[in-house]
Design a protein around this nucleic acid. Structure first.
Lengths: 240, 240
DNA sequence: AAGTGGTCTAGACCACGCG
DNA sequence: GCGTGGTCTAGACCACTTG
């Protein structure tokens, strides 16, 4: 039911994670893969491009596609990922507490970032994330009501993204993120177990739908000692 | 001298940055672009894919390619970028001081991460980066000597990457990065103007060549108030 | 010389949005 | 129904690596 190139991508990624293809192995050549999967070369190349992008393989002209070591760090957790998905990927389980859930006309400082109409309402959702019984993260979400008519405690407790994509069928496309370190606020002290820390890591993100509409602003505030951001990046070869 | 699809990508990106195509404009359709540039559709699609990837446009089936707002945050500075390139992109100039430049057998804690032979030598380069006359960043680079025979003060003062790619012709391919916040060390105090801060943002990266050889480990230590990391990320549609 | 990936082309059919 | 982007195919030629 997926496309061919996605199916093949998943298949190969699975075999790399399985250890069927090991670090520094060569994948079968594009020619062989064509025959194995009975598809055209272009389709194979699409699959391999995603593998390259995601850090699974490195191609070399004249040689082939080498499998990379995907375990030097924990695997990248960047991208647009929900907290629930993140937990699942890391094999840990976290606890979410919904602190605030209300539909309001936003405060000034939120208002300008969200680009909303004068009196447009947004859902304001504050949640804390607990690890080992300590409140480590404060997530402040602002979601335009015009896209999400109704929100309940249970949806916020479980997963906003699951509801938005699964039930409302909205298509989340991309996000712009910014990471900074800032002094703790009274609010942070109220919601988080900060111990002696007087700074928090703040991840601000604007999330957009496929039709390019901004639909969410999130401020995710982390206790510094528990914050890790892992990324895989390719060197840009484009000459400007 | 570049490829067609890269040339077209650069051309379109330039026109978006110029403001010739504005936010929320539609680009010409793939069909029109084919005619405009006299190339096949596949070539156009390759160019558009890079634009999509980099956050310049958003495609919509049945509609076209919309130009995105590239100024909501400063433009992404993620990826594998040298300090000099970063300064150029941000239109600021920074000052680099070379504090240490020596070829040594690395300390134990570096040694294990670098995956080197028992007695292999690495270049150890410590540099501080000054903004507005304050030392804000401490960059600790460890570079395998087998790839870079000779390093001089001037090279480190100017740009390591420029030398490595331009003069040595090594191909930098990708990097794995990790961002954390940690307590300051004596070393940090020695090299940085920390003011009252007692934590630093630490960006650790392992940089690899096209032949998948690890050739550099970098620890970049930032004073928290001056640290910003901006990223553009697309939602992963792949079902696993 | 043979095999690998990189670029480019031409054409087909499909799914989606809109009038 | 038409134009849009999305997928897939088949084939050509090139650049690079290896024996």
């Amino acid at each position: 039911m997926n496309n061919k190139y996605i199916t093949i991508y998943n298949d190969l990624a699975e075999q790399i994670k399985n250890g069927y293809y090991k670090t520094n192995d060569l994948l079968p050549s594009e020619n062989e893969l064509m025959k194995m999967y009975n598809v055209s070369r272009d389709t194979i190349r699409k699959s391999l491009n995603i593998l390259t992008q995601e850090g699974y393989i490195q191609k070399a002209q004249g040689k082939g596609s080498f499998v990379l070591d995907i375990n030097r760090f924990a695997f990248p957790v960047s991208g647009v990922v929900s907290f629930k998905e993140l937990g699942k990927r890391l094999g840990k389980s976290f606890d979410t507490d919904v602190k605030i859930l209300e539909c309001v006309i936003p405060e000034k400082n939120i208002y300008k970032g969200l680009n909303v109409e004068k009196n447009e309402k947004v859902w304001k959702v504050f949640r804390t994330r607990k690890i080992d019984n300590e409140n480590i993260i404060l997530d402040k979400d602002y979601i335009l009501q015009k896209f999400v008519n109704n929100l309940t405690y249970d949806i916020c407790k479980n997963s906003l993204y699951e509801y938005i994509e699964g039930n409302l069928n909205l298509k989340i496309a991309y996000a712009k993120k910014q990471i900074t370190v800032e002094k703790v606020t009274e609010e942070d002290k109220q919601y988080l177990d900060l111990n002696e820390y007087d700074t928090v890591v703040v991840v601000r993100s604007y999330t957009y739908l496929e039709d390019t509409n901004l639909f969410q602003y999130t401020e995710s505030r982390h206790r510094p000692d528990k914050f890790v951001f892992v990324d895989f990046a390719r060197r840009n070869k484009i000459k400007t």
